[in-house]
């Protein structure tokens, strides 16, 4: 379970997170939705351990992430799969080497076994015959899927997605969303995605948390969020411009 307890964070003099409280149950697919610059990615970085809160705590399976040493964080992160806004594939490595990298680093598997796992993960994300290509030879959508395959390599129990639909057309966005739903059904990981893309969020989420001005203003199922009376949630969902 992920517990975010009263987290405050100031960056560059601006208070980005102002007392965030959120719980994500095991196996749940939570989407944190909100406008640009509302602190969604900053919150995700607290869960990864890239940032520490000024006050408050982030607990992953009962372990306080801000209190972890660098070595402890590395141990915890072996159970994470993270898909970044950009594909973040190592450009100097082939797709096969990219996906195999976590296994080469953290397992004693033979080259054959690693190759087998890599092909399996690539098939999970519907990528075929691209093992020897470099990331730059693939389209944006394929790179995103390869990045997803790499995140799945070590059988993570927690998947984190940072704006996974950014830069993709509506069809590719729907494809990625369906992939996440399918993989979630197959593996049963806990997942937190941050996104401002509504169709994507409503498609994948078990629950949605709406982030506005550094606070969670609403949490609920997609239907509950659609019917929310909160003015920000209403305006965000219906794409109503902010009144000056």
């Amino acid at each position: 379970m992920i517990e975010i307890k009263n987290v405050y964070k100031k960056l560059g003099g601006k208070e980005v997170l102002r007392g965030i409280n959120l719980e994500v149950q095991d196996g749940e697919l939570m989407v944190i939705m909100g406008g640009s610059g509302m602190g969604k990615s900053v919150l995700l970085k607290h869960i990864i351990g890239f940032l520490n809160p000024d006050s408050g705590d982030v607990l992953v399976d009962g372990v306080s992430i801000p209190g972890c040493s660098r070595k402890e964080l590395y141990d915890i992160r072996k159970g994470y799969g993270v898909v970044f806004q950009s594909p973040a594939l190592l450009q100097s490595l082939t797709i096969e080497d990219n996906v195999a990298l976590p296994l080469k680093e953290h397992s004693d598997y033979s080259a054959d076994k690693i190759g087998e796992i890599v092909r399996e993960r690539l098939h999970w994300v519907k990528l075929y015959e691209i093992e020897q290509k470099l990331p730059s030879e693939l389209s944006g959508g394929m790179q995103k899927r390869a990045s997803l395959a790499r995140a799945l390599t070590l059988d993570p129990h927690l998947m984190l997605f940072d704006e996974p639909a950014t830069g993709l057309d509506p069809i590719l966005t729907a494809t990625i969303a369906q992939l996440i739903v399918d993989l979630h059904g197959r593996i049963g990981f806990t997942s937190i995605a941050v996104s401002h893309n509504m169709s994507f969020s409503f498609k994948i989420a078990d629950r949605i948390a709406m982030l506005y001005n550094g606070r969670i203003v609403a949490v609920g199922t997609p239907d509950e969020i659609r019917g929310s009376s909160d003015p920000f949630v209403h305006d965000f969902i219906h794409g109503i411009a902010k009144k000056e």
């Binding site: 890239f50 994470y80 680093e105």
Partner: peptide, 21 residues
């Protein structure tokens, strides 16, 4: 370039210390 394209962050989340790799 690896830093700004989040490749270093990707190494960190894969528990691969960039100073080692």
């Amino acid at each position: 370039t690896m830093k700004v394209s989040e490749e270093i962050d990707a190494l960190e989340v894969m528990s691969i210390d960039p100073t080692r790799y």
